[in-house]
Nucleic acid binder design. Structure first.
Length: 527
DNA sequence: AAAAGCAGCAACCGCATCACC
DNA sequence: GGGTGATGCGGTTGCTGCTTT
């Protein structure tokens, strides 16, 4: 499907005159390299057919030769992308199923923005599709002021981590960080993890023997919202990671919560009955610059940015849940008063989730993800034994249980709802929370699919964005635009019914294939 | 009804990695 | 070991339709 109608495409096939001057200026029409004018922009059905035919004859790869051998005026990269994302068989189209969404969430929580690897575990889905899905969701949630992490996903993740790494579990189920004397306490196991990570995480300074609590709190205190954060660290350490999910600018988050009052944090602490009694090194000898652990760059603001590491590009472990769930579990706005109350309640009655053992899932999680990962690992071992990165689900720094990266994930996962102290009633958070086992998230309240659909086609009009006068330049809706010859070819993909794996093309889709405009409207009919 | 903003998607770009010479 | 081309990946852009104001 091409909605880029403004970008002129060719005239129903190989452009006789590919140079389209009015597109050159736009930078997305044609480009010229080595005297060969390469077309950009949306693909047409004819181009698709050419590419499909080429792949059928020559197989995948050698994409740069496509242009030479097939006459396509597309660069190799463009061809590869088109094939991978739209033309190759077994591609699923349409909305993600609930299972797929849940899997994406799990995978993203584990991998970060490794779209290709995630796509490898989602049959029929492309990295681009997953990426777009995720970015769209994240954007929407950010705009709504919601964190990307759903409760159950966090619980699952932390449960798995807890069982896999007892030291992390110690954090997960450990104390709240509130010592009898009211001082703040951060389990040093956290910093043990940090120290252990120093070898491969260059941004982590030499922690030496500095007190973990003093180190972090000292850093926090340098920030204008440090008081808030230090409180949150104790209340809900998961916020560390959570904040970073908002574009890495937790300052915005905080300011949005308390836009006019920098003293709110102190008030909170006072309301909680705590004072800032850090065990700071009085001489300041161990006064290390603030450091970032995963996601904790949110600690940095204008005051401490000079010591802000820049080497690490942080990926967000990202978790989501349905909007409905969010509505019930997350806050969208918060008043300082609510915040105070939340924290207060939190102190008085520690959340259930903090005491909960890893009961929701076992290390293999629900089995779906792990089995896929296992499968992929096996496959990867076979097919990519030479992968020098060895990152195909092999332990990476982020995957290593003892790493700081992981501890951060476990940290926020522990509490499931890391941002809640900012406004969501702690009571509501922990009382309302009901583990959603197995059901996964239901984004946008989409009805659950009973099973993983083999193919969920969402048919769209072939020429939905096409003006009548441009019928000959039909931008292709890839999967529906297979040439008749290819569809008729039962041996093309070993699928007697053509490329529509698991589903015989409907008459409509066949009509698409034949290039006949069935609808000028965008009414979509679920297959 | 018009304008503005949002959502979803396809495609492009730059960089990293790999394979081959 | 270095150079070069091919490929893969992740981030970003640009476009259109839809929704909201």
């Amino acid at each position: 499907m091409s909605r880029n109608a403004k970008v002129k495409v060719d005239n129903g096939g190989l452009p006789r005159d590919p140079i389209d001057s009015h597109l050159v200026d736009k930078g997305r029409g044609v480009s010229s390299t080595d005297g060969v004018v390469l077309k950009k922009g949306p693909w047409t059905s004819t181009e698709d057919a050419i590419l499909i035919d080429y792949v059928k004859k020559h197989g995948e790869g050698n994409w740069n030769s496509v242009q030479k051998n097939s006459g396509l005026t597309r660069c190799g990269k463009s061809c590869r992308l088109r094939w991978a994302n739209h033309l190759r068989p077994n591609l699923k189209k349409g909305a993600f199923s609930v299972e797929e969404e849940r899997l994406i969430h799990e995978l993203h929580a584990k991998m970060g923005n490794k779209w290709a690897r995630m796509a490898a575990l989602l049959p029929g889905r492309t990295d681009n599709e997953i990426k777009n899905y995720w970015n769209t969701r994240i954007k929407r949630r950010q705009r709504a002021g919601l964190p990307p992490y759903p409760v159950e996903q966090c619980e699952q993740a932390v449960a798995a981590e807890g069982q896999q790494n007892p030291s992390l579990h110690e954090i997960n189920t450990g104390d709240l960080g509130f010592l009898p004397n009211g001082s703040c306490h951060i389990p040093d196991v956290v910093f043990d993890s940090l120290k252990a990570s120093q070898g491969f995480l260059p941004f982590i300074p030499d922690l030496g023997k500095v007190s973990a609590s003093s180190l972090l709190m000292d850093s926090l205190e340098q920030t204008q919202f440090g008081s808030q954060m230090s409180c949150m660290l104790n209340c809900r350490r998961g916020l560390i990671s959570q904040c970073s999910s908002f574009g890495g600018n937790s300052e915005d988050l905080f300011s949005s919560l308390h836009p006019y009052d920098d003293s709110t944090g102190k008030e909170i602490m006072q309301s909680v009955g705590h004072s800032f009694s850090f065990d700071q090194d009085p001489a300041g000898k161990n006064h290390l610059p603030p450091f970032d652990v995963q996601g904790s760059h949110s600690f940095s603001n204008g005051n401490s940015s000079t010591s802000r590491p820049t080497a690490l590009k942080l990926e967000l472990p990202s978790l989501q849940c349905s909007e409905a769930e969010l509505n019930s579990r997350w806050i969208t706005s918060a008043s300082p008063q609510n915040l105070l109350e939340s924290v207060d309640r939190l102190i008085r009655s520690p959340p259930r989730s903090l005491q909960v053992e890893s009961k929701y899932i076992s290390p293999p999680n629900n089995g779906l993800l792990e089995s896929l990962v296992y499968e992929a690992t096996q496959s990867s071992a076979k097919n990519h034994s030479s992968d020098k990165n060895s990152n195909s689900f092999a332990p990476t720094p982020g995957d290593m249980g003892g790493s700081s990266l992981d501890f951060c994930g476990a940290e926020f996962d522990e509490y499931g709802d890391p941002i809640s102290p900012f406004g969501h009633s702690a009571t509501s958070i922990f009382n309302d929370y009901t583990p959603v086992s197995g059901s996964g998230s239901s984004l946008d309240n989409q009805p659950y699919a009973d099973s993983f659909p083999v193919l969920s086609l969402k048919e769209e009009p072939f020429n939905q964005f096409q003006s009548p006068e441009r019928e000959q330049e039909t931008p292709a809706k890839s999967i529906y635009t297979w040439p008749d010859a290819l569809l008729a070819s039962s041996d093309w993909f070993g699928q007697p019914s053509g490329p529509f794996i698991g589903e015989t093309p409907t008459s409509d889709s066949m009509a698409f294939v034949t290039g006949h405009d069935l609808s000028g409207d965008k009414g979509t009919a679920e297959a």
